[in-house]
């Protein structure tokens, strides 16, 4: 296991992403952050509060469960659903920023876009991730990236965040470890 992002690195990445979101959207109007379970939920909350501090008003943060839209359901036993929580203003006409921990094949995001389509019709959808490790299998890219992390398929990227794992850290491990 090799640490590639420390707690301080993660904090900086979140701050930077928060600023980028405001900059790219020319403010925080109509922005809704949706975290993808499990760790994306907490990253979205952190980004949301950072943006709140910067612009001086809170912005809506929710969660989007993608389980029912996954294309790999048959590879594992059935998974428990995580509640999807859409902020009271809904998503129609909003600028949605999806938040996840790792961007890899892109399949999770594909499922998230489908799940979003069930709920409504946003004005646009952007993607923020803590780590982009490459190896995309779909034409998907992130708008905001905490760190680009070139990896091989065999390697494992382990994201730990305080709310779930008790600490903030990103590690990388070879498959043989």
């Amino acid at each position: 296991m090799k640490a590639v992002l420390s707690s301080a690195d993660i904090s900086r990445a979140i701050t930077r992403i928060s600023h980028e979101i405001i900059e790219k959207n020319r403010g925080s109007e109509d922005i809704v952050l949706l975290g993808i379970p499990t760790r994306g939920i907490h990253l979205a909350e952190r980004i949301g509060s950072e943006i709140g501090v910067i612009v001086g008003q809170s912005i809506p943060v929710g969660t989007l469960d993608i389980t029912l839209h996954r294309d790999d359901l048959r590879s594992k036993p059935p998974r428990a659903l995580t509640p999807t929580k859409i902020p009271s203003g809904g998503i129609d006409g909003k600028r949605i920023v999806l938040v996840d921990d790792v961007l890899y094949s892109g399949r999770t995001i594909r499922a998230a876009l489908d799940a979003l389509g069930e709920i409504g019709r946003p004005a646009l959808v952007q993607l923020a991730v803590l780590v982009d490790r490459g190896h995309r299998e779909l034409p998907i890219r992130a708008d905001y990236v905490g760190k680009n992390l070139p990896t091989s398929h065999e390697e494992i990227v382990k994201v730990s965040i305080h709310e779930v794992d008790g600490e903030d850290q990103v590690q990388i491990a070879g498959s043989h470890e």
């Binding site: 469960d65 839209h69 359901l73 428990a80 659903l81």
Partner: peptide
């Protein structure tokens, strides 16, 4: 309880305008 909780989540989807999931 898992079944009840899952149903609870699915009930929200049933309330949505598009009532079909690819699952």
């Amino acid at each position: 309880i898992l079944i009840l909780d899952t149903a609870d989540e699915l009930a929200r989807i049933s309330d949505a305008p598009i009532k079909k999931l690819p699952t």
